[in-house]
């Protein structure tokens, strides 16, 4: 889809606004990672992936899976912003009977391709989808979002290892490198760096990218899709809490909902970006 960087920035800001409203309304949820990934999700759904909100399950769609399910608000907000379902439904996040479950549920909502929330599984599912599509000689691409804290799960590396061994070039792994996890900095809990070298050693084609620069994001995805020798991992350096100054770059907001006053402040700040 042809879309300007200004338009992408507009949608990303709208998505951030939805995220604050949703988590504030639900009084629970994970704002930091969700806000940090808004630009990448916007690029993916509005520009990169071959998807059709009118026909969310059509056979020739690209598949977008999320492995770090706690960032569900950014997935739901992006899907609504893209037109998969009405934005009015966003405020039902985490409520009894809602389609917007606390963590994503397979096909529970148009566009939600997999269940996740127990870390380290979505990536394996995505590798299976990529293998399954290739065995059927389908050209669709598979994208999977994985967190950096999530890299501590050994099963993530099992999946990388298999994907590179089987040269699954129809798979792009999207890593959210925001340097935080639930309780602390990733580098304090279990240092991930030198991360790029680790991914490379596992046979992945690795691209580093600023996760808030739409031109760079676009270019990284295009390079990944054009690479035919195996799977690509794009390591997006993102700022957790991006767009809301008091939420940025701290693990405090990993799973902390804003109070009503904090939400009002955050929304005011986001409005000023428009």
């Amino acid at each position: 889809m042809e879309i300007s960087n200004d338009q992408l920035a507009y949608h990303a800001n709208e998505i951030r606004t939805h995220i604050i409203r949703m988590i504030s309304h639900a009084h629970s949820g994970h704002p930091a990672g969700a806000l940090g990934m808004a630009d990448v999700f916007t690029s993916l759904y509005f520009s990169i992936a071959h998807v059709d909100p009118e026909h969310p399950w059509k056979d020739d769609r690209d598949r977008i899976l999320v492995s770090n399910g706690h960032i569900a608000p950014v997935w739901y907000a992006t899907l609504a912003e893209r037109g998969y379902f009405l934005k009015d439904e966003l405020l039902s996040l985490r409520a009894l009977g809602s389609r917007l479950q606390g963590h994503p549920v397979f096909r529970g909502l148009p566009g939600v391709e997999n269940s996740s929330g127990s870390l380290g599984q979505g990536i394996g599912q995505a590798v299976g989808v990529a293998l399954g599509l290739r065995m059927k000689k389908k050209a669709n691409h598979v994208f999977c979002v994985v967190g950096d804290g999530e890299q501590q799960e050994g099963s993530v590396w099992e999946a990388y290892w298999f994907a590179s061994t089987r040269t699954l070039s129809n798979l792009t792994i999207i890593v959210d490198r925001n340097y935080i996890q639930s309780e602390d900095s990733t580098e304090h809990v279990l240092p991930l760096d030198p991360f790029i070298e680790k991914l490379t050693a596992f046979g992945l084609h690795v691209i580093s990218c600023d996760g808030h620069d739409f031109s760079a994001i676009q270019s990284a995805f295009e390079t990944a899709r054009a690479f035919h020798k195996g799977p690509t991992a794009i390591v997006f350096r993102t700022i957790p809490g991006k767009g809301v100054s008091f939420m940025e770059n701290t693990a405090k907001w990993h799973a902390e909902p804003p109070t009503d006053e904090q939400a009002a402040l955050a929304l005011k700040e986001l409005e000023s970006h428009e």
Binding site: N114, Q125, V127, G128, V129, G132
Partner: peptide, 11 residues
């Protein structure tokens, strides 16, 4: 996990 992905594609 991979088997669940394969099942998603009809295998």
């Amino acid at each position: 996990a991979m088997a669940s992905g394969l099942a998603m594609t009809g295998w």
